[in-house]
């Protein structure tokens, strides 16, 4: 793939340093992965506002809660599988239930972790976070959007989960982020692809591919998965009559689940969910993994044909 610039985690590291300069109340916590999560840049610049919990994710989340109680805006980072899995109940009971403004920014989400394999490839984190009342769930598509989302997270009153990746992304959003607002990146009337994260660029490729073959495809970047942009989705369902969702996540409980839940209740149309089909990942290079698990633009295009066929 050409035009790859930076990973969303790189943008996170950059945004944190800016926020550190702007706001005294921003503190950052990590669990021995600060180089990988890119919080190390903040740590270097603001050592008095950085806390390394060591390899102890449960304590990481609850120390963040304590710092929030002391009036700080904590960012707590580690890999997505540990943040949302190992410390789920800490997040549920001690961050979300008291509505504390802890920003959980997890990196290395999805298959594109690559060679580390299934133990480190979080494919359930969106589902886990989305099921918690009051949690904002954000999946930026590129570095510019990640930076804007991080800056926006500081202003959000309450807990936020931001899902970031390890691999470089194509700049496609042009930046900007508004909580709860999806953006239409490409117009079309036959089918709509609703995507998040790295799958947004795949969706754009799929739209080009379909256009060459006579189908017009709308592409929506749904970077906030909770709260979902219901208006935009219903408009897409009305306008296109068929929806395909695309995410680097289990097809259960993530973006596809959220979209299907909404549309089945409000404006039923065929919804085909593209994601990892309820299996664990494995070691491999990111591109090879995306291909193996059916997350390439060609897979999206096939799903679009299926969805269009199902229209009445």
């Amino acid at each position: 793939m050409s035009g790859l610039v930076e990973a969303t985690r790189d943008a996170y590291g950059r945004a944190l340093v800016q926020l550190g300069a702007e706001r005294e109340d921003v503190v950052v916590l990590d669990a021995d992965l600060s180089g990988s999560t890119r919080t190390a840049k903040f740590a270097e610049k603001y050592p008095d506002r950085f806390f390394n919990a060591g390899v102890a994710e449960q304590n990481l989340m609850n120390m963040a809660a304590g710092l929030a109680l002391a009036g700080k805006i904590p960012f707590a980072s580690t890999f997505a599988v540990f943040a949302t899995g190992r410390a789920w109940e800490q997040i549920r009971n001690t961050i979300a239930y008291p509505r504390l403004p802890v920003k959980i920014v997890a990196t290395h989400a999805g298959l594109t972790v690559g060679e580390d394999g299934a133990s480190h490839q979080a494919l359930e984190d969106i589902a886990l976070m989305r099921a918690i009342p009051g949690m904002t769930v954000i999946v930026p598509a590129d570095g510019d959007e990640a930076e804007a989302a991080i800056r926006s997270a500081v202003e959000i009153d309450g807990p936020v989960y931001v899902r970031l990746g390890r691999s470089k992304t194509q700049p496609i959003t042009g930046g900007g982020f508004q909580r709860g607002r999806g953006t239409t990146l490409s117009n079309g009337e036959d089918v709509a692809i609703v995507a998040c994260g790295i799958m947004v660029s795949a969706a754009l490729e799929a739209a080009d591919y379909l256009r060459e073959r006579g189908a017009s495809c709308r592409v929506i970047n749904m970077s906030t998965i909770k709260p979902l942009d219901e208006d935009l989705l219903v408009r897409a369902a009305r306008g296109c009559g068929a929806v395909v969702t695309a995410e680097e996540h289990n097809v259960i409980g993530g973006l596809g689940g959220a979209v299907a839940e909404l549309l089945s209740a409000v404006h039923p149309v065929p919804v085909v969910r593209v994601g990892v089909d309820d299996v664990f990942g494995q070691s491999g290079d990111p591109e090879g993994l995306l291909q193996y698990y059916g997350l390439k633009y060609t897979d999206l295009a096939s799903a679009c044909w299926r969805a269009m066929e199902m229209k009445g």
Binding site: V27, D48, R49, F51, Q58, N59, M61, N62, M63, A64, A65, G66, L67, A68, L69, A70, G71, K72, P74, Q90, N93, T94
Partner: peptide, 15 residues
């Protein structure tokens, strides 16, 4: 979880 919360509070107080 309470002791972790207390540790966070104490860090915040010290800051």
């Amino acid at each position: 979880q309470g002791l972790s919360i207390a540790v966070g509070l104490a860090l915040g107080a010290r800051m």
